[in-house]
Design a protein around this nucleic acid. Structure first.
Lengths: 336, 336
DNA sequence: CTTGACTCCCAAAACGTTTTGGAGAATCTT
DNA sequence: AAGATTCTCCAAAACGTTTTGGGAGTCAAG
């Protein structure tokens, strides 16, 4: 209820002095500062956010656009990431607003609305595509942003990403070393950078080993997509003995296909994301995950540094992928 | 870049007229209105959000507090709900900000910050406790809010909840009708309303059937909690033949315990939430879910109506629970 | 006594919008 | 033809803060 004017009046001081006292300026005496602070605490004064934002020309807000398509939004721990990010942004006085894409609008429309209405100081982009129009738009407007996932944009921009190429190459080589020769890949939609990157890793390893890359199937990055893709691979005349899946959700769908077609437990499989659920599937799902603690905090830090004006080149984090050894990747290899 | 002043100048009109033209007031002629609209479109004018908020005395923001504890935030489809809610709020010009609880602060502190700093027009509360201090605070401040889950607050407040009592009672009676007599309950932390409500449903059914309620174990509402709770029940001298679990995540943890101890497939089990993952477990997990389409839209609608001043009594939705018949709830019943 | 530095405070402007309360011109009514 | 009404438009106030550019005092040095 209280605003600066009322508070100042009750103290017999000017608005200016009260404002500066609360902000800790040196040009107000220690005694008045204390007096002001006490009075402010007593009436529970908090500056009106809108007024401050208008005057300071800052929105104190960061938006993250949530892709609506297809199905789930990122891996299930995505919300944990957002939450961590929001928490660290809050420490710097910024709040995180979520911006889903209403039907009939594009993700670009959303960016436009937020940026041109000066509703945000920065943006967080997830689920980047290889060619991502949002990135181009934000670069043209000069608004700070960070992406989760790289893009093929020519101009560098801040991002955090996992080295899917290296991770999937290593996983494929691991299968090869274990004796597998028919190693299939269940891929996500190739327009997404992460899906393409992971696919490239598998492909590179296969070619290094002199193996054909025909055991390939693509699907939506969900259980159902993995299920259908796995069925497709299992129909091939020469079945795979091992499967490298673009995501854990797809791998879990594939596990179901294996159970149905194969009785299960015959084909080795590995996913990516380290979903908590993976420890509880049957067999427990071996997987990969991006190294690094508290991804949300990293995003927050990059966003703050981008807002502070650091150049994009210094705000790019490529994290190694580590293997999570459960059980599903070492099914006994039958003689070919 | 453009503001009202510049736009007005370039058109040779006053700020007032331009503003009212864009807002579609009748007291500006159709021709000027059109002229103004065209010019605004051309320069891509969008009103400055902060200025509008200050003048209108509305934050155009709704906050949802994210509990940080324990572990996951709500069921995995929680983000879908938030996204749907944000989408419908956006259609009314409101954005949804997520407000995680930093360590060292309480959920109450967050509410205070948002409400007293006039940063929001309303709040969305999730994971209500039976006695929830946030509810009391918001009621005392007279700020509109909606909770996901009821509370034991004496003053009525808007909520959306599933009828966990009826759902769990029905599930327990179903097991009884199938011949089960030793029906266990894996419960969530009882301070949460939903956990308590579901537990009461199981307990009521057991008592109606004249069965003892000693097969009870409590745990964190996560896979691990369900796993440990199930192990506890399986250690009892007289094992349960069926398990009613407070959440799917707990049920999935319990499934793992059953596999380890029992070889699996001997004990019937049912969860709640209808996680997509449940269709892919082994055996596929029978579960329950709240009826009703697009929960997020319902929350948005209730929030808007609460902001519009409708009384709390008319903003309470209790949804029926429906059974989702997969396979895990009809394991063959061995002779006792 | 004057000057300069320093301390503590404040009036006023500014941020960009919406809204209030008319003003002037044109049109209608009688 | 005069008054009433309707159409268009606008100046100015207001929202609550931060920041600019001083203005009184006080004190020490010259």
């Amino acid at each position: 209820m209280a605003n600066l004017k009322q508070l100042a009046q009750s103290l017999g001081l000017s608005i200016t002095t009260v404002s500066r006292a609360l902000d800790g300026y040196a040009d107000v005496s220690a005694s008045t500062r204390e007096r002001v602070r006490e009075a402010a605490d007593k009436v529970g004064y908090r500056p009106n956010a809108s007024a401050r934002r208008l005057r300071r020309q800052r929105a104190e807000l960061v938006a993250v656009t949530l892709p609506s398509d297809p199905g789930h939004i990122g891996p299930p721990h995505f919300l944990d990431m957002l939450s961590g990010c929001a928490e660290h942004l809050a420490a710097a006085g910024l709040n995180l607003v979520i911006a889903p894409v209403p039907r009939g609008e594009s993700e670009l429309d959303i960016c436009r609305r937020f940026v041109d209405g000066r509703r945000v100081d920065a943006m967080l982009l997830v689920r980047t595509k290889r060619k991502d129009e949002r990135v181009e738009f934000l670069q043209s407007r000069g608004i700070p942003f960070v992406t989760n996932g790289r893009t093929e944009s020519l101009m560098p921009h801040p991002y955090i990403d996992g080295d899917g190429f290296a991770g999937f190459r290593a996983a494929t080589l691991r299968f090869h070393a274990a004796g597998h020769r028919r190693i299939g890949h269940i891929a996500g939609p190739q327009e997404y950078y992460f899906a393409h990157d992971r696919c490239r890793g598998w492909r590179a390893a296969m070619e290094e080993c002199g193996l054909a890359t025909d055991l390939y199937a693509e699907g939506a990055p969900l259980e159902q997509g993995g299920y259908l893709a796995a069925l497709e691979l299992l129909r091939q005349p020469s079945r795979p003995t091992a499967l490298v899946c673009a995501t854990d959700e797809m791998a879990i769908g594939a596990l179901r296909a294996l159970r149905e077609v194969d009785g299960g437990n015959q084909i080795s499989i590995v996913g990516h994301d380290d979903l908590p659920m993976g420890a509880f599937t049957s067999p427990p799902l071996s997987t990969m995950r991006m190294t690094g603690e508290n991804l949300g905090a990293s995003f927050a830090s990059l966003l703050l540094r981008a807002i502070a004006g650091e150049p994009a080149e210094e705000l790019q984090e490529l994290h190694a992928i580590e293997f999570v050894d459960r059980d599903s990747h070492r099914r006994p290899l039958r003689a070919a």
